[in-house]
């Protein structure tokens, strides 16, 4: 993918860097949030407990709070002086602020509600009657989650992952607040576009990068659609 193609599209090194970084940050954010998102979606869809509404609201918070506020909150929590950031730094030497990992974390938090929503929809499509049937056939709780629930909710998981990935490519406010705008470290596509528009004579670069984000987003959505159809066929529901 890199190298020759990038040159033919006419990308400068730092532009290519922004594209690569965006892809990296978006994938890492999905990897980080997928398992907790599946767990929380399952709890929200299948369990009734006090505080469920509160958990539901908390998960959805990043959708409604300004991204800058999310970034600021992460800064407070994960900053080198923060209640989570300080021990991380002291014990493991891990610093999240102003790093690629930090950008991925900010992106993960922002796209978390998108994954949870999609996965939850996927779970709600799974007929509990099938799980009951698996029980009568001798499958214990973990066994039937892995062999019945998980495969049947996989279209939801996939849809969530792809949507979160596509949205993660474009995360701006939380990333710039928490991880700053460092070329090669945290300057993802939208941040690079923003910088280009702030630079005299950067219009052409901004346009090229904008076109790339558009193409990436479209490719992501089309891919999601194709995979969803395949999965539905595989699960015998028809497309």
């Amino acid at each position: 993918m890199p190298g020759a193609d990038a040159v033919s599209v006419g990308l400068a090194v730092e532009e290519w860097q922004a594209v690569r970084l965006s892809l990296e940050v978006a994938s890492r954010s999905v990897l980080v949030s997928l398992l907790p998102a599946i767990a929380i979606a399952w709890v929200l869809a299948r369990r009734r407990f006090p505080g469920r509404m509160l958990l539901d609201a908390l998960v959805h918070l990043p959708l409604v709070v300004p991204p800058v506020v999310v970034g600021w909150a992460l800064l407070m929590l994960f900053g080198v002086q923060g209640p989570i950031g300080a021990p991380l730094h002291a014990w493991f030497g891990v610093r999240l602020v102003f790093t690629t990992e930090g950008a991925a974390l900010a992106t993960a938090v922002m796209s978390f509600p998108l994954i949870v929503r999609a996965v939850r929809l996927g779970i709600e499509h799974v007929d509990p009657g099938l799980e009951a049937a698996a029980r009568t056939l001798g499958a214990g709780p973990i066994d039937r989650f892995l062999t019945v629930t998980l495969p049947l909710m996989s279209p939801g998981i996939l849809a969530g992952a792809v949507t979160a990935f596509a949205a993660g490519l474009g995360e701006f406010g939380a990333v710039i607040t928490f991880a700053s705008n460092i070329p090669g470290e945290t300057q993802t596509l939208p941040l690079a576009i923003y910088s280009a528009t702030q630079t005299p004579g950067g219009e052409a670069m901004a346009a090229r990068l904008a076109l790339i984000s558009f193409v990436l987003a479209m490719a992501g959505l089309l891919l999601a659609e194709v995979i969803a159809r395949r999965m539905h066929l595989l699960l015998g529901r028809g497309a």
Binding site: D127, G129, L130, A132, A133, A134, P151, L235, G236
Partner: peptide, 9 residues
């Protein structure tokens, strides 16, 4: 069961 409940996958 009345509705068979075969695993579709």
């Amino acid at each position: 069961f009345q509705d068979a409940r075969l695993f579709p996958h």
